[in-house]
């Protein structure tokens, strides 16, 4: 009887984990964009975490950090370079599970708009 309870307990924990993973937004993970430049490739990576934080990395250098929220196919993003309290909104379009395009809906932060509008990224495999 005690063994049965133990197994049931383990099963409950496992189901909780599985339900969390399956509920995770497909954006969670690392997304890459490689841009050509006269001085060599520019390797952009965005890390979207399950806790609604994200970071931008360029050629291995962390360059921006902020928060994001997703509702349906709209992502709202803020970052430290623009203003952590202000959120720009972008439409997300997944061409496939590993291919994502950002299109601006509304963002008054010029630098972010220029960088993010039309940005297409490819998802990196998990480490």
């Amino acid at each position: 009887m005690k063994n049965a309870f133990t197994w049931l307990g383990c099963l409950a924990v496992l189901l909780t984990i599985v339900s969390f993973i399956s509920a995770q937004d497909p954006i969670v993970g690392r997304w890459q964009r490689i841009q050509k430049s006269p001085d060599g490739d520019i390797n952009l990576i965005f890390v979207f975490r399950a806790d609604s934080t994200y970071d931008g990395i360029v050629n291995g250098k962390a360059f921006t950090t902020g928060r994001y929220f997703i509702k349906n196919d709209i992502i709202s993003v803020s970052d430290n370079g623009c203003n952590l309290a202000y959120y720009g909104t972008y439409k997300l379009k997944y061409y496939a599970q590993d291919s994502l395009l950002f299109t601006a809906i509304s963002d008054t932060c010029k630098e972010r708009y220029q960088g993010a509008n039309g940005l297409a990224c490819k998802k990196l495999p998990k480490k």
């Binding site: 990576i45 975490r49 990395i57 050629n59 250098k61 962390a62 950090t65």
Partner: peptide, 18 residues
């Protein structure tokens, strides 16, 4: 000079590699 890039600070390790 263009080769003198640095991207391996503890801060980068924190943000890039969690």
């Amino acid at each position: 000079e263009r080769s003198l890039e640095t991207s391996d600070s503890p801060f980068d390790d924190w943000r890039v590699n969690d």
